[in-house]
């Protein structure tokens, strides 16, 4: 892998270091201080930080603005872009703006449907008109094109705007036999790194990785399995039942149920998962999340032996 974009994540991966990414969700209000606080907690513990784009269709500070705030704090952002809210004109315009601001990583996603509204916990905007002018794979092609100095239309730009391009992979979502093909499409379109839906079932994930490897995909893109720190048996149960593409083995749920201190057990499980995916061929890093508990991550990353970051 050549470092074309100037992304630090790209450099880390190219140099063969096991990468760590984490997530910083922008606030629902306009306070830059909130972003800075989260940044202060996580600074130095990951190579790059995903900044979500109106996740679950809830209006939040724009991913481009929050990314810039992180950048100014010395953290490298991965700006997420969903296809729900902007057409190819707006997205390309934002990409050029992001590049001008120094942002170099983008993660291309379809985006939750606007009916999601934080799973019913907030009003959200179910009456919104969605865009979906392009899909996530077409978005990858477009980002790739800007890197070569060509807009989607074919019009040239100068200079080019190279990005380090990310995409998502849900290996266990139905139709399962298509999920590796879809991963290949993303990589064919230009994805350089892949963050997966949260993995708990190592055996099944290992099989999925083998399929990806057999198709030569692990050589073309860096795969970073997602791991969400489990906090309780209830949370695992909920994700297992309700979050598409997340599968939690029964033993793990039982283990959390039996644990005297579920939170401690959750951290132990996380460390075991990190260890397990580290040993899988083709895995180039991890994407760690601790929902509403980012403060846990520094210790976990430390204990996993992933410090110091390059």
């Amino acid at each position: 892998m050549k470092n074309l974009s100037g992304s630090n994540l790209e450099y880390t991966l190219a140099s063969g270091v096991f990468a760590v990414t984490a997530e910083v969700g922008p606030p629902k209000g306009p306070d830059a201080g909130e972003v800075k606080e989260k940044a202060a907690v996580l600074k130095g513990f990951a190579d790059a930080y995903n900044v979500t784009d109106n996740q679950t269709a809830v209006v939040r500070m724009s991913s481009i603005a929050a990314s810039k705030i992180l950048y100014d704090q010395g953290l490298e952002p991965i700006m997420q872009i969903v296809c729900r809210d902007r057409n190819r004109i707006a997205i390309q315009s934002d990409l050029l703006g992001a590049h001008a601001l120094g942002l170099r990583n983008v993660l291309c996603l379809s985006g939750d449907h606007q009916s999601a509204g934080a799973g019913g916990k907030l009003n959200g905007h179910p009456g919104a008109k969605n865009v979906f002018d392009i899909d996530s794979i077409q978005l990858i092609s477009i980002v790739k094109g800007l890197g070569k100095g060509i807009q989607e239309s074919g019009d040239p730009i100068s200079p080019a705007a190279p990005f380090f391009i990310g995409a998502a992979w849900t290996p266990f979502g139905p139709p399962e036999k298509f999920r590796t093909i879809r991963l290949k499409k993303k990589i064919d379109a230009g994805a350089n790194f892949i963050q997966t839906q949260a993995v708990y079932d190592i055996k099944r994930f290992a099989e999925a990785m083998r399929r990806a490897e057999d198709m030569g995909l692990t050589e073309k893109a860096a795969i970073l399995p997602g791991i969400i720190v489990p906090r309780s048996a209830g949370m695992l149960n909920y994700m297992n039942a309700n979050v598409p593409g997340i599968e939690v083995p029964d033993e793990m749920i039982q283990r959390m149920k039996d644990a005297q201190h579920p939170k401690v057990e959750g951290i132990k499980i996380t460390l075991e998962l990190v260890d397990a995916v580290k040993n899988l061929s083709g895995v180039k890093g991890v994407h760690l999340q601790a929902i509403e508990a980012e403060g846990l991550l520094p210790d976990i990353i430390n204990e996993a032996g992933l410090l110091p970051r390059p």
Binding site: S110, G111, H113, N130, D135, T170, P174, F178, K185, P244
Partner: peptide, 15 residues
């Protein structure tokens, strides 16, 4: 629901 042209999003339910 998202008029996708390149295959299913990550939201397909288990069923």
């Amino acid at each position: 629901a998202k008029s996708l042209l390149n295959g299913p999003c990550g939201g397909t339910r288990g069923n």
